[in-house]
Amino acid sequence: MKPLVVFADAQAAAADVLRAALTGRLEPYAAGVSVGTRVPGDRSPETPRLPYVLVRKDGDLPHSSMANTRATLRITVWHTDADQAHDLAQLCQGLLIVHSGPVIRGVRPATGPLAAVDDASDTDLSTFTVLANVRPTA
């Protein structure tokens, strides 16, 4: 009989990784950053919630042996201008790529960072995706 295998929440784990790694960073564009897994209701440049980093799981692809799953994580960064959104997105991407821990064992870049403007708030943002290898739990 095969053991029951489940995978932890890669979205929550990535948010925790970024929350911890961004705390105390000296880069000016990282000052006061918040990290979450839900789109903030008010994302206008005037609100003190900027900069904001959103972590969402777009999907995953389990390996046939169930020894690994690869989750696609989409990270979106809202900031006060396009340059700072891009710089913070690049920093977040780098912090995820060098991470290895109990849930996420490794990360590879996939797309971006790509510049955009939030339709709802006209706020500059930058987004990217990474592929995260997630450890199984028996």
Rank of each mutant, 00 (worst) to 15 (best):
V98W: 00
P45S: 00
V134W: 12
A15H: 03
N133K: 12
A116E: 02
G94L: 07
D124C: 04
P28H: 09
P28W: 07
D119Y: 09
H63I: 02
G32W: 05
D9K: 07
V103D: 06
T72R: 09
T137M: 11
L73N: 01
V98K: 09
R43Y: 06
S126L: 08
D58W: 10
R135F: 13
V35H: 11
A67R: 14
S126F: 09
A8P: 07
E27I: 00
G36Q: 10
A21R: 15
P45Y: 00
K57H: 09
A110K: 11
V53R: 06
A116V: 06
A71Q: 05
T123Q: 02
P62Q: 06
L50S: 03
A31L: 13
T111S: 15
Q93C: 09
G112K: 10
A21K: 09
V103T: 15
P62Y: 06
A82M: 10
E27L: 02
H63L: 13
L131C: 02
A30M: 08
T37Q: 12
R49Y: 01
Q93F: 02
T123N: 08
A67M: 09
T47S: 12
T127W: 04
L88D: 03
H99K: 04
G94V: 07
R43C: 08
V107R: 01
L91Q: 13
G94H: 03
V39Q: 12
D58F: 14
G24E: 10
T23W: 09
V35M: 11
L22S: 07
T127Q: 08
S100K: 14
A138Q: 08
T23S: 12
T80V: 14
A13W: 05
Q84R: 12
Q93S: 14
T47N: 04
T76V: 05
A30I: 10
L73C: 00
L4Q: 11
A12L: 11
H99C: 10
L4V: 12
S100R: 15
A13H: 03
A67F: 12
L22Q: 01
G101V: 13
P62F: 07
D16A: 15
H99T: 11
R70I: 07
V98Y: 00
P136F: 04
D16C: 03
S126G: 11
I75E: 01
M66V: 01
V6P: 01
A132W: 07
D16F: 01
L91C: 04
D87S: 14
A20D: 14
A8C: 05
P48V: 10
A82D: 08
V117T: 14
V134H: 09
R105M: 14
G32Q: 05
V6A: 12
R25S: 10
T72P: 02
R108P: 04
